[in-house]
Deep mutational scan, measured.
Amino acid sequence: DVEEQIRRLEEVLKKNQPVTWNGTTYTDPNEIKKVIEELRK
């Protein structure tokens, strides 16, 4: 469920934690926001 994935990513973003997505770890909040934007398409 895309909405659920977006919610999880936004939670991690608020906590300033790194996100691992498709084998890539993102630590930059701007990169995480880009992943969220991609999911919304």
Score class of each variant (00 low, 15 high):
I36K: 00
R7K: 12
E11G: 05
T24R: 13
K34V: 06
K33R: 15
V19Q: 02
G23S: 03
E38I: 12
D1Y: 13
K15G: 08
K33V: 10
V35H: 02
E37T: 07
E11D: 11
Q17G: 10
K14W: 13
E38F: 15
K14A: 14
W21R: 02
I6K: 01
K41W: 10
D28F: 03
E4D: 12
D1R: 11
D1E: 11
I32A: 03
N16L: 07
N16V: 04
E11S: 08
R7L: 09
R8D: 06
P29D: 03
D1T: 14
E4V: 09
R40V: 05
L39P: 00
W21P: 02
K33D: 03
G23F: 03
G23Y: 02
P29K: 08
I32M: 03
I36H: 00
T25E: 07
E38D: 08
E38N: 10
L13V: 08
Y26I: 11
E31F: 05
D28H: 08
D1S: 14
V2G: 03
V12P: 03
T25L: 15
N30A: 12
V35L: 15
P29E: 05
L13Q: 03
I32Q: 01
I6H: 01
N22S: 04
V19D: 03
V35S: 01
K41D: 04
D28E: 10
V12H: 15
R40D: 01
L9N: 00
V12L: 15
N22V: 02
T24C: 05
R7V: 04
N16R: 13
V2M: 08
G23N: 04
K15S: 14
E37M: 11
Q5L: 14
E10L: 14
T20Q: 13
I32T: 02
Q5F: 14
E4M: 12
L13G: 02
E37L: 11
W21Y: 12
K33A: 12
K34G: 08
R40H: 04
E31M: 09
E31Y: 04
R8V: 14
K34H: 08
K33P: 01
Y26K: 00
V12C: 15
Q17H: 06
V35A: 04
R40C: 04
L39D: 00
T24A: 09
L9K: 00
I32E: 00
Q5A: 12
K34W: 10
E10W: 10
V12K: 15
T25D: 04
T24P: 00
R8K: 13
N30H: 12
V2W: 13
N22P: 02
E11C: 12
K15W: 13
D28T: 09
N22G: 12
K15A: 13
Y26F: 08
E3R: 13
Y26R: 00
E3P: 06
N22F: 13
W21F: 14
Q17N: 07
P18Y: 07
L9T: 01
W21D: 01
I6Q: 01
T20L: 13
G23P: 02
E4Q: 11
P18G: 10
R8H: 13
K33Y: 12
E38A: 14
K33N: 06
E31G: 04
R40A: 04
P29A: 08
D28P: 00
E11Q: 09
I6M: 04
T24M: 10
K34L: 11
D1N: 12
Y26S: 01
E4K: 06
V12T: 09
E11A: 11
Q5S: 09
V2Q: 05
T24D: 05
N30T: 12
P29W: 07
E37Q: 11
K41E: 09
D28C: 06
K33G: 05
N16T: 07
V12R: 14
N22L: 10
L39E: 01
E11R: 06
I36L: 13
P29Q: 07
N16D: 06
E11V: 06
R40T: 04
P18S: 13
E11Y: 05
L39I: 05
G23Q: 03
Q5H: 09
V19S: 02
E31N: 03
R40M: 08
P18L: 06
K14G: 09
I32H: 00
R8P: 01
K34I: 10
Q5V: 14
I6V: 06
T20D: 14
E3W: 15
D28G: 05
V2E: 03
